Measured scan of single mutants.
Amino acid sequence: NKASVVANQLIPINTALTLIMMKAEVVTPMGIPAEEIPKLVGMQVNRAVPLGTTLMPDKVKNYE
């Protein structure tokens, strides 16, 4: 099972992601793969992401 990116804290809307905000966890359904964490640093979320929520591609601005 592959790990996904999960919010390590509440991430407010329009916040630029940092390493400390994210952790890798095996979750269902799968979100953004954990190996993409370095790519996500500096990207902004387009909505608030509660603690423990899986980061889905549609929650990150300009994620492809």
Rank of each mutant, 00 (worst) to 15 (best):
residue 1 N to D: 15
residue 1 N to G: 14
residue 1 N to K: 12
residue 4 S to M: 03
residue 4 S to K: 01
residue 4 S to R: 04
residue 5 V to F: 05
residue 6 V to T: 05
residue 6 V to F: 01
residue 6 V to Y: 00
residue 6 V to W: 00
residue 8 N to I: 07
residue 8 N to A: 15
residue 9 Q to L: 09
residue 9 Q to V: 14
residue 10 L to T: 13
residue 10 L to Y: 15
residue 11 I to R: 01
residue 11 I to C: 04
residue 12 P to N: 08
residue 13 I to W: 05
residue 14 N to T: 02
residue 15 T to Q: 08
residue 15 T to G: 05
residue 15 T to E: 07
residue 17 L to F: 01
residue 18 T to E: 11
residue 20 I to S: 13
residue 20 I to C: 13
residue 21 M to P: 06
residue 21 M to E: 08
residue 21 M to H: 08
residue 22 M to W: 02
residue 22 M to G: 07
residue 23 K to S: 09
residue 24 A to E: 08
residue 24 A to V: 08
residue 24 A to Y: 05
residue 25 E to D: 11
residue 25 E to G: 10
residue 26 V to R: 10
residue 28 T to Q: 13
residue 28 T to M: 13
residue 28 T to H: 13
residue 29 P to E: 05
residue 29 P to I: 08
residue 30 M to P: 14
residue 30 M to A: 13
residue 32 I to S: 04
residue 33 P to D: 09
residue 34 A to C: 09
residue 36 E to C: 14
residue 37 I to G: 01
residue 37 I to D: 01
residue 37 I to W: 04
residue 38 P to T: 10
residue 38 P to D: 09
residue 39 K to H: 13
residue 39 K to S: 12
residue 40 L to C: 03
residue 40 L to V: 02
residue 40 L to D: 02
residue 41 V to M: 02
residue 41 V to G: 00
residue 42 G to L: 03
residue 42 G to R: 00
residue 44 Q to T: 12
residue 45 V to F: 00
residue 45 V to L: 08
residue 45 V to C: 00
residue 46 N to R: 10
residue 46 N to P: 03
residue 46 N to Q: 08
residue 46 N to S: 12
residue 47 R to N: 12
residue 47 R to C: 15
residue 47 R to E: 15
residue 47 R to Q: 15
residue 48 A to T: 15
residue 48 A to Y: 09
residue 48 A to G: 06
residue 49 V to R: 00
residue 50 P to V: 05
residue 50 P to D: 09
residue 51 L to C: 15
residue 52 G to M: 02
residue 53 T to R: 05
residue 54 T to P: 07
residue 54 T to H: 01
residue 55 L to A: 01
residue 56 M to E: 05
residue 56 M to P: 02
residue 56 M to I: 05
residue 58 D to Q: 07
residue 60 V to K: 02
residue 62 N to F: 11
residue 62 N to K: 07
residue 62 N to T: 05
residue 62 N to L: 07
residue 63 Y to E: 03
residue 64 E to A: 12
